[in-house]
């Protein structure tokens, strides 16, 4: 166990370093004048951007040699200081607290919802492959996957905000505001996880041990519970890990249509506006979340499938 934790810590360190260095390098080599972009990001498109850019360049020391700037960032990172956003001037940590926090809530809600929806439907589909439940499940998941999230979001808004009048179309701060964006994301996730579950269950159902258990005359529910779910859960859990990663960044459009302050929205702005400390901070935070999620998924997989433990 201690070894496992140490390995994870080392991995987190490597991820932090690599992500920081890569972001830094990539943002450096991008074509275009960073100061201009920062100025446009700060003062909006009506301002005198060229003049503002001159002041930005001076103020931020963007003309310093890049190794100096990178070492600066590293030195601050060691002291847990992520610097200040070049655009808003606020500490990156403060911005992350709001935006990453909001995104994590959204992502967690979406995953919970998708876990309620996806695997449940997948189990029913998988138990009788090619039955009518399965066909319906397939059609549903394909429809959900063919709609871009903003179309799905709009449809949900029309249904829940206009037609039924239960939930607000946009906003944040209360769980009511969270419901629609989370549901939009959850439906997209459930579309895939229900199929992954269905396939896994369909495989398990045909496995000799499962058939045998059925023949033994155990009640259907018990068979599924004892043998089916556990075995089918392995690919589902491992896929869920991936989904969690995509979620945190795949929320951009959902965040912007629901006016929800999140990391995806912040990251896009930061990249477009060449806000390097924000990009680095955001990427770093996402990288660390990734390490945590992978660790959790591996632990879950190991618990589900004892044979895997040998390799850990």
């Amino acid at each position: 166990m201690r070894q496992f934790l140490l390995a994870r810590l080392a991995q987190a360190g490597i991820v932090a370093l690599v992500v920081g260095a890569l972001c830094f390098a990539l943002m450096r080599v991008l074509p275009g004048d960073a100061a201009m972009r920062i100025a446009a990001g700060r003062y909006g498109p009506d301002a005198r951007i060229a003049e503002a850019a001159d002041k930005v360049r001076l103020e931020l020391g963007l003309d310093r040699a890049w190794p100096v700037q990178f070492l600066d960032w590293l030195a601050s990172l060691v002291q847990f200081d992520l610097g200040h956003s070049l655009v808003t001037g606020a500490p990156v940590v403060d911005e992350l607290k709001v935006q990453l926090g909001a995104s994590v809530w959204l992502a967690a809600a979406a995953i919970m919802l998708s876990l309620l929806i996806g695997p449940t439907i997948g189990v029913f589909c998988g138990l009788k492959p090619n039955g009518w439940t399965d066909r319906l499940g397939l059609a549903g998941s394909v429809i959900l996957r063919s709609l871009p999230p903003f179309v799905l979001g709009l449809i949900l808004m029309l249904v829940f905000a206009i037609w039924l009048g239960w939930l607000p179309p946009a906003g944040f701060g209360t769980w009511r505001d969270l419901a629609l964006p989370a549901l939009t994301l959850a439906l997209g996730l459930a579309a895939v996880s229900s199929r992954v579950t269905r396939d896994a269950i369909a495989t398990v159902v045909k496995a000799p041990y499962f058939v045998f258990a059925r023949h033994k005359g155990l009640p259907e529910a018990a068979v599924v519970w004892r043998h089916g779910l556990r075995n089918a859960a392995i690919p589902v859990v491992s896929y869920l890990g991936l989904q969690a990663i995509y979620l945190v960044e795949g929320v951009v459009v959902v965040e912007s249509i629901f006016a929800y302050p999140g990391i995806g929205h912040a990251l896009v702005h930061a990249i477009v506006e060449r806000d390097i400390p924000m990009v680095q901070g955001t990427a770093l935070a996402m990288g660390l979340i990734f390490v945590a999620v992978t660790a959790a998924v591996e632990a879950a997989s190991a618990w589900l499938d004892p044979r895997l433990r040998r390799t850990q």
Partner: peptide, 15 residues
């Protein structure tokens, strides 16, 4: 794979 995953995909595409 971990490094690719840890880098926000959106960032890769935008860059």
């Amino acid at each position: 794979a971990n490094i690719v995953l840890a880098l926000p995909g959106l960032m890769l595409v935008l860059l």
